[in-house]
């Protein structure tokens, strides 16, 4: 029995060490090759999820880059921001999407649930430090381990195709043409009822927001919260009281640019939570004016 256990453990340990070595080699190589550099004239960026991703048309905003991506929680934003700041010291203003859903518990799940680990980890693994890996391992060990083969395949694919521009693969303005709001209002809505996950307070996501803000301060960036336009009957608004409380109590020092109630026609929305290209145009022109006034440029 002892011999059996010894040999089996030996076999498994060697596999573990091999996997770890391959992982470290791939990560080191990708770290070395990765490009996070933005154009030198980019001085303002926005981070966040699909709301800013579809709202900020950065071709209409001067010296501005949209670095948001669908479903991105602050955990992944924090990892991305570290690389972006390291490679782009010219950035002065950082806009962080801070909306109702970002303070909700559902956002925690969007860090480490099966679906999100499977989606995000292969992209971000190269930039994660030990504590970030340990956090995911603690939260969802099964999924993290199950995602490793996919992660390595993606990384090898990236090396093979020499696709090292991470800005394009982790962010960018999303141009949406469709407008489904009216049909949604006529069919699904108001049947949509928020689950508890949308009403209770996030813990992990907000912790990483605090880390993100600390990082911005450390890198001497001006931080703003921004709440992108949201349709008036969006069920995300159900936690409005909680949202306001958190803003007031946890982040009182940060300016919130609140566009949630911006007057936007129905056909400018894709659905209840996202603008389409028309809405993005209207919003981006307006935001650009504000930004230029603020920075004193015209």
């Amino acid at each position: 029995m002892k011999l059996f256990l010894k040999k089996t453990i030996q076999f498994i340990v060697i596999i573990g060490i091999s996997i770890l070595s391959v992982s470290m080699t791939l990560n080191m190589y990708l770290n070395k090759k990765a490009r996070f550099a933005l154009d030198k004239n980019i001085t303002s960026v926005v981070f966040g999820h699909s709301h800013p991703e579809t709202a900020f048309n950065d071709s209409l905003i001067v010296n501005f880059k949209n670095l948001a991506q669908s479903g991105e929680s602050y955990f992944y934003t924090y990892i991305k921001a570290k690389q972006v700041f390291k490679n782009n010291p010219q950035i002065e203003n950082v806009f962080i999407e801070f909306s109702n859903i970002d303070v909700a518990k559902v956002r925690d799940k969007q860090i480490w649930s099966d679906k999100y680990i499977n989606w995000r980890y292969p992209i971000y693994a190269s930039w994660m430090n030990i504590s970030e890996n340990a956090f995911l391992l603690y939260k969802n060990p099964k999924s993290l381990i199950a995602t490793l083969p996919k992660t390595y395949k993606k990384q090898v694919e990236r090396i093979k195709t020499k696709h090292h521009n991470y800005i394009t693969s982790t962010s960018g303005y999303l141009y949406i043409t469709e407008s489904k709001l009216d049909s949604l209002l006529n069919t699904n809505y108001p049947k949509e009822k928020p689950e508890d996950l949308y009403l209770t307070k996030s813990t992990d996501n907000l912790d990483y927001l605090k880390k993100l803000i600390s990082l911005c301060y450390k890198e001497s960036k001006q931080v703003y919260f921004v709440r992108s336009p949201l349709y008036k009957d969006s069920f995300y608004r159900a936690n409005e009281t909680l949202f306001q409380e958190i803003k007031k109590e946890v982040f009182p020092e940060i300016t919130l640019l609140d566009y949630a109630n911006l007057d936007v026609p129905n056909d400018h929305f894709r659905d209840l939570h996202h603008l389409n290209y028309k809405g993005a145009k209207k919003f981006s022109i307006m935001f650009n004016q504000w930004l230029q006034q603020k920075t004193g440029k015209q």
């Binding site: 076999f11 596999i15 996997i19 099966d114 499977n118 199950a146 490793l148 996919k150």
Partner: peptide
């Protein structure tokens, strides 16, 4: 043993969730 490692690597590499 090397052959068994190759099998493990194949399983690891080609596995799908």
């Amino acid at each position: 043993i090397m052959f068994y490692y190759i099998l493990v690597i194949l399983i690891f590499w080609f596995s799908r969730n």
